[in-house]
């Protein structure tokens, strides 16, 4: 016993190398500070470069003029307005989120609450698999399988029916060629379901057991427990997940560019071709020879950057506002 004490004392008394005390601390601290600050520097410089490159266009049309302009003509008039793409991005993303949100939430609830563990694991892995498919592969599938099928089975019948009964609807419906806004929206919805599902499931798993048991003990049925105790507690996480998925939908490029039909000018129609901010950038970047054209694409990149930033900040704000810690509403 005494020997042990002596040993411990010896270890404690042993001089510690300077690297473990003063110097080691300093090195670690400075590395952490530099790496942390570099993230801030990186994002600020990205925004600054995008804005700088786009300033030619902002100068030519005015900042708000550029955002409000409805004509995008890089060929003859050299007029560039971003509104069609902002509109296309917002509409496709919002619509995709609206389509994806409730099914994704239902899948998340099913995995977390209802499914036996083995089935939940299988579904979860399949959902992750969908998330892992490169978007260009989904785009190819969309071009060769999904869009032609939708054209034959959905768009053409709807179009013919409208032509017969409500011809005034035709301009709103647009050209039923299969490559257009509706196809892009559905593919986008499919692509964000995994994210919303995963984040819903995470939020639900974090609901304390006590909350569920309290509801069970009041004589709640399974669905009542979910409605009364689980969803209210997880609401912050679920909503933040939805907004983060929305952010992904905004930035989704490849699959959308392959399916949306790429029409640059207003007005867009439901089934007809349209464009989004990422799709116009990827489609025109290689052919942008004029400096004003290039600058306008950069300016669109800047707008996209700002919108994504706002969406992420909004998600963070909602999580903080609605999250519940230790039984207290923050």
């Amino acid at each position: 016993m005494k020997k042990k004490e002596e040993q411990i004392n010896n270890v404690l008394k042993k001089p510690v190398g300077i690297i473990y005390r003063w110097l080691g601390d300093r090195i670690f601290l400075s590395a952490a500070v530099i790496l942390g600050l570099s993230i801030i520097f990186l994002s600020l410089s990205m925004a600054w470069v995008l804005y700088g490159e786009g300033s030619l266009s902002f100068g030519e049309f005015g900042f708000w003029g550029f955002l409000r302009g409805t004509t995008w003509d890089p060929g003859i008039q050299l007029i560039f307005g971003a509104l069609p793409f902002i509109f296309g991005t917002i509409v496709t993303s919002v619509a995709a989120l609206l389509i994806a949100f409730f099914p994704a939430m239902a899948i998340g609830i099913f995995i977390a609450e209802y499914a036996p563990r083995w089935l939940g694991n299988i579904i979860e892995n399949l959902v992750h698999l969908i998330a892992a498919i490169p978007s260009v592969v989904i785009g190819i599938w969309g071009i060769f399988v999904f869009a032609p099928w939708m054209r034959e089975k959905v768009y053409l019948p709807v179009f013919n029916w409208a032509a017969e009964h409500y011809p005034s609807l035709l301009p709103v419906l647009g050209n039923p060629m299969g490559y257009g806004m509706a196809s892009a929206i559905i593919i986008l919805a499919l692509m964000i379901i995994p994210y919303t599902t995963a984040l819903t499931r995470d939020a639900i798993r974090q609901v304390p057991k006590e909350q569920r048991e309290a509801a069970w003990a009041l004589g709640a049925t399974r669905w009542e427990v979910i409605r009364m105790a689980v969803i209210p507690y997880a609401r912050g996480g679920i909503l933040a997940g939805a907004i983060l998925s929305f952010g992904r939908a905004i930035g989704e490029t490849m699959a959308v560019a392959m399916l949306i039909g790429n029409k640059n000018n207003f007005p867009f129609s439901i089934m007809g071709p349209a464009a989004t901010m990422p799709s116009v950038i990827i489609n025109e970047f290689r052919e942008a020879v004029g400096s004003l054209h290039l600058s306008s694409l950069m300016a669109i990149g800047f707008v996209l950057f700002v919108i994504s930033l706002i969406v992420n900040l909004l998600a963070a704000y909602i999580t903080r506002k609605l999250s519940i810690s230790g039984g207290q509403v923050a």
Partner: peptide, 21 residues
């Protein structure tokens, strides 16, 4: 079991109010 739990109430170790209600 749901009707049983309505007849036999339970109070837990930790207070468990539903925080959003």
């Amino acid at each position: 079991p749901v009707t049983i739990r309505r007849k036999i109430g339970m109070v837990f170790q930790k207070p468990t109010p539903f925080p959003t209600m």
